[in-house]
Computed example of a mutant assay.
Amino acid sequence: MTHGGNIIDELTTDHREVEDLFGRIEASPSGAADRKRLIDEVTIELVRHSVAEEQYLYPAVREHVADGDAMADKELKDHAEVEKILKKLEGCSAEDPQLDRLFMALKDSVTRHVQDEEVNLFPQLRMACSAAALDTLGEKVRTAKKMAPTRPHPAAPVTPPANKILAPGAGLVDRARDFVTGRGKS
């Protein structure tokens, strides 16, 4: 899928990629090493996506959308739920009987979150911001995803400025760990 464009297009592309990964996970047999590799891949994508949303999408929603504070708070609560599930999945082996149950909980939670963003939040943000502002936010999101952590950090701050300061350092450590272990390499 092609990345680029404004923040809404960028994040929607991420949503479709995660949905594709969910389908590939469901198609792989329970207990298979490939299933765990795909779960690691979806974890990487979800963490990077969430960090970028927390750094740029939700602050923009707070600033520009009516009742934006409540909307952003609800989305951050969704992120916290997903991050806890991802942390549990991170500790599972391919053969762990909890893996399938946790994956289904993750899929359900992410699907609800994506639906809410695409039906409620994105249209309101599109109406509240200029095309130029949305394009600028898209660039910032793409940059943030490159520096973001690749592993769940449930205790990390989720609002600026702390998340913008700490996420790149955690991202560097995560990418080093991934390089050493081969995690995230297809």
Rank of each mutant, 00 (worst) to 15 (best):
residue 50 S to K: 05
residue 15 H to V: 02
residue 131 A to P: 04
residue 47 V to Y: 06
residue 176 A to G: 10
residue 129 C to I: 03
residue 86 L to E: 01
residue 91 G to H: 11
residue 117 E to C: 09
residue 58 Y to E: 06
residue 125 L to S: 05
residue 23 G to R: 12
residue 85 I to K: 01
residue 66 A to H: 09
residue 151 R to F: 08
residue 91 G to W: 06
residue 143 T to K: 13
residue 144 A to D: 00
residue 160 P to F: 06
residue 109 S to E: 13
residue 9 D to T: 14
residue 94 A to G: 12
residue 184 G to E: 08
residue 83 E to I: 00
residue 75 E to Y: 05
residue 101 R to Q: 12
residue 35 R to M: 03
residue 57 L to H: 02
residue 167 A to V: 02
residue 1 M to K: 07
residue 39 I to C: 13
residue 130 S to Y: 07
residue 36 K to M: 06
residue 27 A to E: 15
residue 29 P to L: 12
residue 154 P to L: 01
residue 102 L to C: 09
residue 14 D to N: 10
residue 3 H to I: 04
residue 146 K to N: 12
residue 79 H to L: 02
residue 142 R to S: 04
residue 130 S to W: 04
residue 28 S to V: 02
residue 112 R to G: 15
residue 186 S to M: 09
residue 154 P to K: 11
residue 176 A to V: 14
residue 177 R to T: 11
residue 107 K to V: 01
residue 141 V to F: 01
residue 152 P to G: 01
residue 104 M to H: 11
residue 57 L to F: 02
residue 34 D to V: 14
residue 131 A to D: 14
residue 15 H to C: 04
residue 62 R to Y: 03
residue 106 L to P: 01
residue 104 M to D: 14
residue 63 E to K: 14
residue 167 A to C: 08
residue 140 K to Q: 07
residue 81 E to L: 13
residue 32 A to H: 15
residue 8 I to G: 03
residue 166 L to D: 11
residue 166 L to W: 12
residue 94 A to M: 12
residue 148 A to L: 00
residue 74 K to L: 12
residue 144 A to K: 01
residue 31 G to Q: 04
residue 174 D to I: 02
residue 128 A to F: 01
residue 161 P to N: 05
residue 73 D to L: 10
residue 150 T to N: 10
residue 34 D to G: 10
residue 65 V to M: 03
residue 96 D to E: 11
residue 111 T to R: 10
residue 163 N to R: 12
residue 162 A to F: 15
residue 20 D to K: 12
residue 77 K to V: 11
residue 95 E to W: 07
residue 19 E to T: 08
residue 25 I to A: 04
residue 77 K to F: 13
residue 22 F to C: 06
residue 81 E to P: 04
residue 9 D to R: 13
residue 122 F to G: 04
residue 101 R to D: 15
residue 21 L to M: 13
residue 78 D to Y: 04
residue 115 Q to R: 13
residue 178 D to Q: 09
residue 160 P to N: 15
residue 40 D to V: 00
residue 99 L to A: 14
residue 89 L to H: 08
residue 96 D to C: 10
residue 117 E to I: 10
residue 68 G to C: 07
residue 18 V to W: 01
residue 156 A to P: 08
residue 60 A to Y: 00
residue 27 A to R: 12
residue 176 A to H: 08
residue 37 R to P: 02
residue 96 D to H: 08
residue 183 R to S: 06
residue 21 L to E: 10
residue 61 V to I: 11
residue 91 G to P: 05
residue 186 S to W: 10
residue 57 L to Y: 00
residue 57 L to W: 01
residue 153 H to E: 01
residue 175 R to K: 15
residue 136 T to F: 03
residue 8 I to D: 03
